[in-house]
Design a protein around this nucleic acid. Structure first.
Length: 547
RNA sequence: GUCCCGUUCGUCUAGUGGUUUAGGACGCCGCCCUUUCACGGCGGUAACACGGGUUCAAAUCCCGUACGGGAUACCA
């Protein structure tokens, strides 16, 4: 029994390379094809969303195809339900794949399967082909033997790896190999590398430009003992068969570029274009490092979901990270969708960007500021239904009131307020509109305004007398102003500054009495709009509590 | 250890040899507007990692050094 027969025994399949190539027709000439290829490890990394966004844009900016491929060749790391997390994660951000997995059991597209564990026979067919053409061979080393090799190499200050004379089974006598096969010893298949480490070769990266890198001389594992391929091999096979034209991935892959190009060429294929993007980083103890899914909660998209950042706001933030010209686009086109932005891969920064949540906040504020009151209601309700049930139920029961609150300084104004950072902060900004969470504390108005009880009570009780909720803003303000003047508040700041001893304060201080009495806060939106929204009954009731 | 990548205000960046007293945005500070808070307007703070070259001229080109990141797995 030779090694091919052994593979057939362990991983039976009749599939041939010819069958496969017939099955996958070439893509239309000139069509751009990109893909995102995450591993189902149980969380959706914000960096994956970033890479997906860029890949999706590159494809869809010019009628290309964007594929979602699930890279689940590492059975040890796989987590239950992780595929759904990826699929839904991308969909939630508005990133739609044209081909690939659409649920754990379904997929769409003619170049599938799009889940690597379901493509085992395809990889095995190519593995057998490489063995036949003398470009791959079995290796029977145990993990311990590999560790030993690495240890020796490290001790001698050499490059680590399975290459040259260290490649134990590369030139092993036929009898030894046969003996191992006959003894059913576990094996992997390795690439028989033709590269020489001292040879430099020019590789071209779409972002990093021409790079001189050493050829790969390592006989890397291409098929694991499980019969599944390693990432490197699956990448070459899949991206060839699926017709990927542009591989856009994190720059941690840059050092394996020579290996990947070598694999394509050994298989007789033209490699795709590669664009290695820099990862999103975080400041840790004075040092930057890649966002880590274990250490950094911000690495997971659930962080943004829980905080209540709108998906669009996160996408805009990532888009700005990718192309800083987005900011100007946003200013010039406040009404356009982020998907209308002319993204340009070439304009991406070459170095890693630090995740800046303050900047995200700013973009998120702007985003919410562009929404209508109804949209704020709808999106907040969506978020609350998952993250804050109490708020959700309150919203259901008081829909009109909520929408009216959101209209304050949003409709019929020159500029919209920006005090809503994200969904999770909104309730804290508006809770005082609700009587059950508006707790008047005795003497609070006096304390906050630093005015005597007589002044406060006198002004409030006269105000209640005069309050006409049908008056328009200007009339209302004029009335309030007159009333304030009769209560010894200065008409303006100048007057007050001249003789402060003759006044209780300025009109602003008088307004503050009302504001604090009505809301319990010194900082709120426009007084008139708030009172209109609260309604006369509630306004009077609350004011009376301060008498 | 070895190999690779990167380095412009605190952060994201513009800048591809002279148009640059290095521009914008976020943040921060101040002023103005103002019935508060915001919004907005105006202004300010603040950067070419370092050292050598090349050149009439360098943030921009070359070479070193430092620092940071990544790779070096039957993980992706």
């Amino acid at each position: 029994m030779n090694i091919i027969e052994k593979i057939n025994e362990k991983f039976p399949s009749d599939l041939t390379v010819e069958d496969i190539e017939d099955k996958y027709p070439p893509r239309p000439e000139g069509q751009i094809v990109t893909r995102i290829a995450p591993s189902p490890t149980g969380m959706m990394h914000i960096g994956s969303v970033y890479a997906a966004l860029i890949s999706e844009r590159v494809a869809h900016m010019q009628d290309g195809v964007f594929i979602l491929r699930i890279e689940d060749t590492d059975t040890k790391r796989e987590v239950e339900g992780a595929t759904d997390i990826i699929i839904n994660g991308l969909k939630n951000f508005g990133i739609e794949a044209d081909e690939g997995a659409i649920s754990r059991t379904e997929e769409t597209g003619d170049y599938g399967p799009y889940t690597q564990s379901q493509r085992r026979d395809i990889y095995i067919a190519y593995i057998k082909k490489l063995i036949e053409q003398g470009d791959a061979y079995p290796c029977f080393c145990t993990p311990e033997e590999i560790d030993d090799i690495r240890e020796k190499q490290t001790k001698q200050g050499m490059r680590t790896g399975y290459y040259g004379d260290w490649a134990k089974y590369r030139n092993a006598p036929k009898e030894i190999i046969q003996e191992n096969i006959d003894n059913d010893k576990p094996f992997v298949i390795r690439l028989k590398s033709s590269g020489k480490h001292f040879n430099k070769r020019m590789f071209e990266d779409v972002l990093k430009g021409k790079r001189n890198l050493p050829e790969n001389d390592s006989d890397v594992v291409i098929m694991k003992a499980t019969g599944l391929p390693t990432y490197h091999f699956a990448h070459a096979v899949d991206d060839h068969l699926m017709g990927t034209t542009h591989v856009i991935r994190g720059d941690e892959w840059l050092s394996s570029l020579p290996l990947h190009v070598q694999l394509f060429e050994t298989l007789g294929w033209t490699p795709p274009h590669f664009a290695h993007i820099s990862p999103i980083e975080i400041m840790d103890d004075g040092n930057r490092r890649k966002l880590s899914k274990r250490k950094d909660p911000e690495a997971s998209v659930t962080f943004y979901e829980e905080k209540g950042y709108a998906k669009e706001a996160v996408i805009e933030y990532l888009m700005n990270l990718a192309n800083s010209t987005f900011e100007a686009f946003r200013v010039e086109n406040p009404d356009k969708s982020v998907w209308e932005f002319p993204f340009d891969l070439q304009k991406m920064g070459r170095s890693g960007a630090l995740l800046d949540l303050v900047k995200l906040d700013s973009m998120s504020r702007d985003y919410i500021g562009r929404l209508s009151a109804e949209e704020v209601y709808a999106q907040l309700a969506d978020w609350a239904s998952l993250m804050d049930r109490d708020l959700y139920e309150r919203m259901q029961a008081n829909k009109e009131y909520f929408i009216n609150i959101f209209k304050i300084e949003r409709e019929n104004v020159e500029r919209v307020r920006k005090d809503f950072v994200n969904w999770s902060t909104i309730w804290g900004e508006i809770d005082y509109f609700f009587d059950d969470v508006f707790p008047p504390i005795d003497g609070y108005v006096e304390k906050e305004t630093e005015l005597s009880s007589d002044v406060v009570k006198g002004f409030i009780s006269d105000f209640i007398e005069s309050y006409d909720d049908t008056a328009d803003n200007e009339t209302w303000f004029a009335t309030m102003k007159d009333l304030a003047i009769t209560h010894k508040f200065a008409k303006n700041g100048k007057l007050y500054k001249k003789e402060p001893e003759n006044y209780n304060g300025t009109i602003a201080d008088a307004a503050k009495i009302l504001r604090v009495a009505l809301t319990g806060k010194a900082q709120t939106p426009d007084l008139y709009s708030m009172m209109q929204t609260m309604g006369k009954e509630r306004v009077v009731e609350r004011l009376k509590l301060s008498l």
